[in-house]
Design a binder for these strands. Structure first.
Lengths: 110, 110
DNA sequence: GCACTACGCTACATTATCTGTAGCACGACG
DNA sequence: CGTCGTGCTACAGATAATGTAGCGTAGTGC
């Protein structure tokens, strides 16, 4: 479990372009999902686990650490994970995805 | 290698919400990156591989198949992968990510 | 103090997934 | 025919995720 995120080099950032680093960071299992679940209000680690279909705490913890190092997520004082201002911004970016997903389903079968 | 994408159930869609299916589909290695690299003009499978830092053809082929089944990517007549209209829509959604990534880098170190 | 609960977080064996290299079948070009 | 470029696949080795269990800490009620 390497610790390299946000400190200058994330896996996939070989090109130097920050989008790649971001794309790679978000393209990990549960990363997008975590941001999505945190979009409303902060959740405890166990609450987040429940929200994420009981994903294993190992990955969740790993993603949470990466996301924290990236500055998108933070651990509140009284416990519970929440989005930082930056994380909230990022989440805004994904909001259109919700509407898109609905349209997508109606077009792709189902 | 299971074939289940877009045909009603993708891994992670247990909740039934299409966002989850989409989040899960895009939250696989190279999925986001592939969409991103295809955003401009179509690329051949090898061209795409080059664009994706020489990622192994195994995963690329797997993602390409999933993305095709999802209706985001298509294989052109004369060869070369390109985005479908739906895929292009999805890509539009990610465009703000580029600007965000720049801001992110300046805030998170580097 | 003591049990009880919930928190963030970790260990570890099993299983799934990705990497890297090689190579196939097909077609176009010379 | 030989060579090149397609899309795509096989397979061994490395890496990451799963699932279950449990740690240390902190707050509660007694």
């Amino acid at each position: 479990m390497a610790k390299q995120a946000a400190s200058g080099k994330v896996r996939g950032s070989r090109t130097g372009r920050p989008v790649m680093a971001l794309l790679d960071l978000l393209g990990r299992r549960w990363a997008l999902r975590i941001l999505w679940e945190l979009r409303g209000e902060p959740l405890t680690s166990r609450g987040l686990r429940t929200a994420c279909d009981e994903a294993s705490p190992t990955v969740l913890q790993a993603r949470l650490t990466e996301l924290r190092e990236a500055g998108f997520v933070e651990l509140g004082d009284g416990g519970g994970y929440g989005l930082t201002a930056l994380g909230r911004e990022l989440c805004e970016t994904f909001m259109p995805l919700h509407r898109f997903a609905e349209r997508w389903r109606s077009k792709s079968g189902a």
